[in-house]
Design a protein around this nucleic acid. Structure first.
Length: 552
RNA sequence: GCGGGUGUAGCUUAGUGGUAAAGCACCAGCCUUCCAAGCUGGCUAUGUGGGUUCGAUUCCCAUCACCCGCUCCA
C-alpha cells in the first residue's frame, strides 16, 4: 500500500489548497474529526462525524450489497466463466497468535531496525550485511545493503574508504571470515555503517512492531500475548473449512468480510489515507487452480468497474498491474486500483484496493506451517533444526469437488479494499467549486460535493419555501413520510437559497420545496444538486425519482 | 525515527510583552413565494505543560497534533 510514483512530481500549491479545503470542509460539516481532539489529538486516528459516518456506511453497504447480498449466484455474471456463490463472515479481531505466524505477518511485521545517527537512514537489522576487514592492527566490520552479486565489490569499496586507501592499494585489505549479517555483531562501535563516514554511528537494534500487541486476560506475561489483526483476510482463511462445511457452498465461491484492522504504521500521513486503525472490505475468492488466472482477471475488472460506477470515472482512477518483479513468487498476478488523491504530487496515485492472485499460499500455510514465499514450488519454511519455523494447524483445508470427486487445495483471488480510503476518494472526487447565481442573478462561488446518490449521506432535504401559510406543516408531513425509507433532512430556517447551498456542501443530491401551490395541488419542486434545475411534479413522483436515483 | 514548517472562535484570517480584531458560519427574533451576503441581538479562541517576567497569545524549553521532505509501508 503505497503511493505509486509514475512521474516524479511536486505537489502544487493548488493541490495543497484543494486538500486543505477538503479537510476544512470535513471538519466544518462533520465528516471527519481528529481523534481525541480535545486532548490534543491522536496521531493517525480520525473520527467520522454525523455526515462522515453516513458516507462511510454507504460505501460499506454498497460494497456488501454488490458483493454479497445482491449477488446473483444463479446466472453467469458478465465476464465470468460460470455462476458462483458469495457469502459473508465477521471474524473476531483477536485471533490465535499462531495465525499471524503462519500468515507471515509475525515475521514481516516484527523487524529489528537499526538507525544511522549520521546518515539518518534506517535499516532492517537482518538486511545489513558485512564482513570483518583488517589492515594492520585496524579491524572494522564494514557493512552494506545491496544485491548479493555486488556485495563483495561494495564491501571492498567501503573498506577502502574506511582505511583511506587508493583503489590500487586494495590488496592491503584482508578479510576475516565470510559475509555475515549484522546480527552476528555485538559491539556496534566497531561497525562501519552502510552510508556512514565514520564507524559507530549505528544505534542498537530496536524492535519495530507493526502489529498492535495486547494481552488476553488480565495477566500480562509472554504467554498471554495477542495481536489486533493487521488484516481481515486471515479470519476468512482460518474459517474456510467452517464455511464449506456449514453452508453448502461449492467452489468457485467467495467469502466477504468488512472490519477494522490495525497496523502500527511508522508514519501515519495524509489525512485518513494512512492511519493506524482502518477498515477493510475484503473478499477471498476460492477457485480451482486451473481457472485461477481467469478469476483473477474477472475480479480485477469487476472491482475497477465498481469504483467507476460509484463516481470515480475519470482519469483520477487507474488500474495498475504489478510488474513481474513486484509480484510475490507464488502470485501470478496482482493489480492495484489507485486514485490520484489531491494530497499526492501530480502523476502519483494512492492505492484504494489490491487484487491479488495468492495461489494456495494461505490455505497451505495454515495447514502445513508457514511456507517460504521465496520457494518454488512453495515449501514449508524450515529453521536450522530442520523443523518448520512456524507450525501450521495440521488440519486438512483441501476441498473435495462433490461432482468430479477431485481433491485439491483451492487457489485464492483476494480483492482487498480500504473502506476509509474509498470514502476519502469519493470525498475528494466529489469536491467541486463552481459558480451559481444569487438572488440578483449575480454569479457567486459555490462549494458542492457531487456524491453519487447511493453514497450521499443525506439523500434529500425537505424545505417549506417560507415559514408560514401552512407550508411548514405540509413539508413536515412529507418529510416524515420520506424518512421512513430514506435519510432525509428538514430545514425551514432562512432564505431557501441558503438552504440549497448548505445541502450542496453536504452533498445532498435532491431538495424538495413545498410552496403555496403544494397546498392546492400536491406538487412540489424537485431541485437537483449538480445542475440546480428545478422540476415541478407531484410529491409521490418526486419521492420515486429520489428512490430510483439512490438505487441506481 | 530524522529534518523543515504550522498551531489564535466551528471555518478563514488579523494582531500585540499590558482589555485579542474581523469576515463568514452558527443561534434567537424580524423580514422573506425558489438559489448564500436585509435588519436586530447573541455565543464562541491564543493546542498542552513548564520557564523567564510585575505581567506571556507574543520570548525560551518541552510536549502533542497537522502539513512538507526523508525513512517505512508484507
Amino acid at each position: 500500500m503505497h503511493p505509486h510514483r509514475t512521474v516524479g512530481g511536486q505537489l502544487s500549491n493548488d493541490d495543497l489548497g484543494v486538500m486543505q479545503k477538503i479537510v476544512s470542509l470535513c471538519k466544518r460539516r462533520g465528516f471527519l474529526f481528529q481523534s481525541s481532539e480535545i486532548y490534543g489529538g491522536m496521531n493517525g486516528c480520525w473520527d467520522y462525524g454525523p455526515l462522515g459516518v453516513e458516507l462511510k456506511r454507504n460505501v460499506k453497504e454498497a460494497w456488501w450489497a454488490d458483493m454479497v447480498t445482491h449477488h446473483d449466484d444463479i446466472s453467469t455474471p458478465e465476464g465470468a466463466s460460470e455462476a458462483f456463490e458469495m457469502t459473508g463472515l465477521d471474524c473476531s479481531i483477536l485471533m490465535h497468535p499462531q495465525v499471524w505466524k503462519c500468515s507471515g505477518h509475525h515475521d514481516l511485521f516484527h523487524d529489528m531496525m537499526v538507525d544511522c545517527k549520521e546518515s539518518k537512514r534506517r535499516y532492517r537489522h537482518d538486511q545489513v550485511r558485512g564482513r570483518w576487514a583488517l589492515r594492520g592492527d585496524d579491524r572494522i566490520f564494514v557493512t552494506a545493503v545491496c544485491e548479493p552479486d555486488e556485495e563483495h565489490e561494495v564491501l571492498t569499496a567501503r573498506a577502502q574508504k574506511y582505511f583511506g586507501l587508493r583503489a590500487k592499494d586494495r590488496d592491503q585489505i584482508s578479510w576475516d571470515g565470510v559475509v555475515v549479517s549484522l546480527e552476528s555483531v555485538s559491539d556496534f562501535s566497531e561497525v562501519f555503517g552502510p552510508d556512514a563516514k565514520e564507524p559507530g554511528t549505528l544505534t542498537e537494534p530496536r524492535e519495530f512492531n507493526l502489529m498492535f500487541k495486547t494481552h488476553m486476560g488480565a495477566l500480562l506475561d509472554e504467554a498471554s500475548v495477542a495481536y489486533l489483526r493487521p488484516e481481515t483476510a486471515q479470519g476468512i482463511f482460518v474459517n474456510f473449512k467452517n464455511v464449506v462445511d456449514s453452508s453448502r457452498v461449492r467452489i468457485p465461491f467467495g467469502i466477504a468480510q468488512i472490519g477494522k484492522s490495525f497496523r502500527n504504521e511508522i508514519t501515519p500521513r495524509n489525512f485518513t489515507f494512512r492511519v493506524r486503525e482502518f477498515e477493510q472490505m475484503e473478499v477471498e475468492f476460492f477457485c480451482h487452480p486451473d481457472s485461477s488466472h481467469h478469476w483473477y482477471g474477472y475480479w480485477r475488472d469487476r472491482r475497477m468497474k465498481w469504483y467507476q460506477e460509484l463516481g470515480l470515472s475519470g482519469d483520477n482512477l487507474i488500474l495498475r498491474e504489478h510488474d513481474a518483479d513486484e509480484l510475490s513468487h507464488y502470485s501470478t498476478g496482482t493489480a492495484d486500483i489507485e486514485y490520484a488523491f489531491p494530497f499526492l504530487p501530480k502523476g502519483e496515485f494512492g492505492e484504494l484496493e489490491g487484487i491479488a492472485h495468492r495461489g494456495d499460499f494461505d490455505l497451505r500455510s495454515h495447514m502445513e506451517g508457514k511456507l517460504n514465499p521465496a520457494s518454488r514450488p512453495l515449501e514449508v519454511e524450515l529453521g536450522e533444526d530442520g523443523k518448520p519455523v512456524h507450525r501450521g494447524s495440521g488440519k486438512d483445508l483441501s476441498y473435495r469437488d462433490p461432482v468430479t470427486n477431485e481433491k485439491y487445495i483451492p487457489h485464492v483471488i483476494e480483492p482487498s479494499a480500504g473502506a476509509d480510503r474509498a470514502a476519502l476518494a469519493f470525498l475528494c472526487e466529489a469536491y467541486t467549486e463552481d459558480m451559481a447565481p444569487d438572488e440578483n442573478g449575480k454569479m457567486q462561488g459555490r462549494v458542492v460535493l457531487k456524491f453519487h446518490p447511493r453514497i450521499a449521506p443525506i439523500k434529500a432535504a425537505v424545505f417549506p419555501l417560507v415559514k408560514k401559510d401552512g407550508m411548514p406543516e405540509c413539508a413536515q408531513e412529507i418529510y416524515r413520510d420520506l424518512k421512513r425509507d430514506l435519510p432525509v433532512f428538514y430545514d425551514n430556517k432562512g432564505a431557501v437559497g441558503r438552504r440549497y447551498r448548505r445541502m450542496d456542501e453536504a452533498g445532498t443530491p435532491y431538495c424538495l420545496t413545498i410552496d403555496g401551490q403544494t397546498l392546492e395541488d400536491g406538487t412540489v419542486t424537485l431541485r437537483e444538486r449538480d445542475s440546480m434545475e428545478q422540476t415541478r411534479l407531484p410529491v409521490d413522483e418526486a419521492a420515486q425519482a429520489i428512490r430510483e436515483a439512490v438505487r441506481s
